[in-house]
Structures are given as C-alpha cells and as structure tokens.
Amino acid sequence: MEELHCIGCGSVLQSHDPKKPGFIPSSALAKSDEDIICRRCFRLKHYNEILPIEVTQDDFYEIISNIGETDSLVVMIIDIFDIEGSLIPQINKLTNHNDCVVLVNKRDLLPKSVSERKLLHHLRKILADSNLRPLEIFIMSAKRYHNIDTVMEAISNISGNRDIYVVGATNVGKSTFINTLLKSYAASSNDIITVSEHMGTTLNVIKIPFDHNYIIDTPGIYNDHQIGNYLSPESLKIITPKKEIKPRSFQLNPQQTLFINGFARIDFVEGPWTSFICYFAPMIKIHRTKLSNADDLYKNRRFDVLKYPLQEESFALIPHQLQIPTGKHDLILPGLGFITIIGPAKIIAHVHQKTMPYIREALI
C-alpha cells in the first residue's frame, strides 16, 4: 500500500502509535483524501494546541543530510530578529556544498526606517564570519509579501530545472514562505503547510510540485542555543514578536540593572551614563532597578514583578561579563532580541544557561 503523508507536516500517516509523528485514528484514515492532515496538525491548526511527539535531533539532521545526495538549490532562511541564533553554519557540509541562497525573513519586525543596504552589509559580514558564502542574499518578509517577487524570480533563475530545498532553524518562517509562494504563484488561497509559533511544526520533508521541479519544505533544525527550545508554549508567545518592534530607550547610570521579564538580566557595572535601546517583543516587560536591589528582586518578586517563566522549573540565569567597546554596539540575547548600547560600558548579562550573549556592530 502506498504511503500517505500529512499535507501539513510531511509525516507518514499511521494509526498504531499516538506518540509517533503522523498519527491519525484509523477511522479518519479510511476517509482520507489528498489534503488529509494528522491529528497533531489538526489540533495545531484549529486549537493552537501542540501534541508531544517523539522526534530526535538526529532525525532532523539525517533528513537534511539527504539533500547532499541530490543536485539541488538550497534556500536557507534565517530570522532577521535572531540572525546568529538561526544560522546553520554546517549547512554547506550537510548538503554536500549544493548551491545556496540565503533569505533573511521577518523584515517587517524591524523599523521601516532601517536601511536595507546597511542590513545587507552587516549580513554579509555575519555570514562570512560563519564561513557561509551564498550565491545571493535577500531581505524579505514572507508574512507581509515584502520582496517576494524579487526572491521568486531569483531562485527560479538560479535553480534552473533543479529542485529547491527550503532549510533553516526552527521558527524562521520556512513554511510561511512556501505558503506565500503558493498563494502568489500557484493560485492557492489557503495555507497548505501547517504554520504556527510553536517550535518544530514541520516533521518531515513536504514535496510540492512547482513549475518544472519541486519546492521541498524541510523540518527546522534545532539550534541548542535558541532559548525557544527551552520554553513552554505560553512563554514562547511572550517572546515572539508579531509586528514591527518599537524601540524602548532607557538612560542608565552605572550600578543599575534591566530585567527582561524573568528571561534575562543586564547589569550596567561601569561606564559613563549612556543609552540602552531595547528591541524586544511588545509583550516582554522591561523593569529597571538598582544593581544593589537586583538579587533580592529576582529572588522574592520574580513571579509577580518580573513575570518569571512559571512553567520552566529548570530555567536558570548564568552571568557573563562583557565589555562594550566605544561607540554604538548591539548586545545580543539569543532568541529574545537585542539592546543597542553606546559604549564604553562594562556589563554583566545574565541569560539562560544554554544560551550565550555576544556583541556585534549596531545593526540599526
């Protein structure tokens, strides 16, 4: 019997194990049609509820490494709001050095005044530092259709008659991008691939005929240092921006602290009075206090004042000492956002134990 696949996540449909990908009750499977979806995708689509399933990180890497056995165009999507956190530096090796185009998604999250020329300059440097040298780099917004026509024309010309594999870390917008293409160029009025804010929605490859070849959606690769991998769905909603980020500016003296909800803490230890311009999702609350009060506040008021992520019992903040050079630089809190600081400044960034803060030239 021919295998049937869930049109939403790509899993092989099966009725024997509810904990495995692709589960669907046998009664529903008997009524199947070409648009059938598994129980997990059904619950996700209609109730925004994600059911736990057993998929390992090795499963994802094995799927991606199969691209290396083909002659294809690899389209890697990264998140403009979490550039370094959503990179896959090993993508060239995993795909056996197939041609690669990089799409930088979610342009709509940054202020409209930001120069795309300046963004591209920074992006080329960041990619080069990770030994990534794509044929082309494009800035786009799959959700808002920004630059989609240019992107589609470019990847169509570059791919020729080759298949196009869309790859990326979890939650960068791969499935949203493919749905946008289908709506724009294939007269599709509805989302075909399941899209959600939850990490790891796509579980297997989803192969869609397009022109004379296929566009193939792949599962998102888990980067261990993405904070979203360690948060509950409720906390993930808080940290995930859905519209243009409005900068929030704080003028700080040394010996002051900023709490980013309970997700992170930034101590301004030494330096002249300066600006901390924060770029985080609107639902994230920023609380300023004296450094001398910070420990007590975190210990005794984190659940009410700081809105500590309640369901993350193992959530712990680890301090990292950093020196902001003279001039304008960004302090990156992977998966959360960034703070533009005018240095020099000595800071201590307290972040989730699996993530690592770092400094880059100011993006904005």
Rank of each mutant, 00 (worst) to 15 (best):
E2F: 12
L4N: 14
G8S: 12
S11F: 00
L13S: 13
L13N: 09
S15Q: 05
K20D: 09
K20I: 04
P21F: 01
I24P: 05
I24H: 02
A28Y: 07
L29P: 06
D35E: 11
L44A: 09
K45Y: 09
Y47M: 14
I50H: 03
I50P: 04
P52H: 06
P52M: 01
Q57L: 15
D58G: 08
F60S: 12
E62G: 07
E69K: 13
L73V: 08
V75Q: 04
I78K: 03
F81A: 13
K93F: 13
L94M: 15
T95R: 01
N96D: 04
N98W: 15
N98E: 15
V101L: 01
L103A: 08
R107T: 11
E116Q: 10
K118A: 09
R124C: 04
D129H: 13
N131Q: 02
P134C: 10
F138Y: 09
F138A: 11
F138C: 10
R144W: 05
N147T: 07
I155N: 00
N157W: 05
S159A: 02
G160V: 04
R162T: 10
R162L: 12
Y165H: 12
V166M: 06
V167D: 02
N171F: 07
K174S: 03
S175F: 04
N179Y: 10
S188T: 11
S189P: 03
I192P: 04
I208K: 00
I215E: 00
Y222R: 08
S235M: 07
I239F: 08
T240V: 08
K242H: 14
K246M: 11
R248P: 09
S249M: 13
Q251L: 15
Q251H: 14
P254N: 02
L258M: 01
G262H: 01
G262P: 05
F263S: 00
R265T: 14
V269A: 13
P272L: 01
P272Q: 05
W273G: 06
I277D: 15
I277N: 13
Y279R: 15
M283S: 15
T289P: 05
K290T: 12
L291I: 11
S292D: 04
N293Y: 09
D296H: 11
K299Y: 08
K307R: 15
K307E: 15
Y308H: 11
P309N: 09
P309H: 07
E312F: 10
L322G: 10
Q323W: 11
P325S: 01
H329V: 14
D330V: 08
L333M: 09
L333H: 06
L333G: 06
G335M: 01
L336K: 06
G343S: 11
P344G: 10
A345G: 04
A345R: 00
A345D: 02
A349H: 00
K354D: 08
R360H: 11
E361A: 12
